[in-house]
């Protein structure tokens, strides 16, 4: 996606010094520089976000977001999205195992048709899964506020992590 975005910017951005033509559209030095810088910035931000998400447990992130005094609704949506995606991924794995067990001998076009049909089933399952998750949370007093796990406290190390992450994102956007 980033590459496609880069090509799009290279073709659309203006400049004086024409380097070459792609599909009849002139590509300039300035356009290439703009495209390259944008792609690298976005890549850096995406990598930093991914690293942060993979290395920091969700409960720490919730504690951090709460310490930053973000609205409860925003924290709840972040937490629920992450949790729901994990549960959905597990459901998807089980569903695909079931499909593979019964469609291994099918030719590729037929398997594509099966996969497209499964996507509908998966969507229905996702809705049902969300309802059951809501029931489980409601039965345990969930009121829109994600309870903070007692072992998670905001410590100096967390502040350092957040500051370092912000610094990385800042420099990625700057250069």
């Amino acid at each position: 996606m980033l590459l496609v975005l880069g090509v799009f910017i290279a073709l659309r951005a203006e400049g004086d010094e024409i380097l070459f033509r792609m599909l009849g559209v002139p590509v300039t030095t300035e356009a290439l520089t703009t495209a390259g810088t944008t792609v690298v910035r976005l890549l850096a931000v995406a990598c930093a976000s991914l690293l942060f998400t993979l290395l920091v447990p969700m409960s720490h992130i919730v504690a951090g977001l709460r310490a930053l005094r973000l609205p409860q609704a925003m924290i709840a949506v972040t937490w629920l999205t992450e949790r729901f995606l994990v549960l959905l991924a597990a459901d998807a794995r089980r569903l695909m195992e079931g499909v593979r067990a019964r469609s291994a001998a099918l030719p590729l076009p037929r398997r594509i048709i099966v996969a497209s049909r499964i996507s509908g089933t998966f969507l229905v399952r996702a809705v049902s899964r969300s309802e059951r998750m809501a029931d489980a949370m409601t039965a345990r007093h969930f009121d829109g506020r994600i309870p903070l796990h007692p072992t998670q406290r905001w410590v100096v190390r967390d502040t350092v992590s957040v500051v370092l992450t912000l610094v990385v994102i800042f420099f990625a956007l700057l250069y």
Binding site: M133, A136, R140, H141, F142, R145, P147, L148, H149, T151
Partner: peptide, 19 residues
């Protein structure tokens, strides 16, 4: 349907914390 937290301990703590 009942377990939705990243660890067992967090799931068990969810109810009392929400209370």
């Amino acid at each position: 349907d009942q377990l939705f937290s990243p660890t067992v301990e967090e799931d068990v703590a969810f109810g009392p914390a929400a209370l």
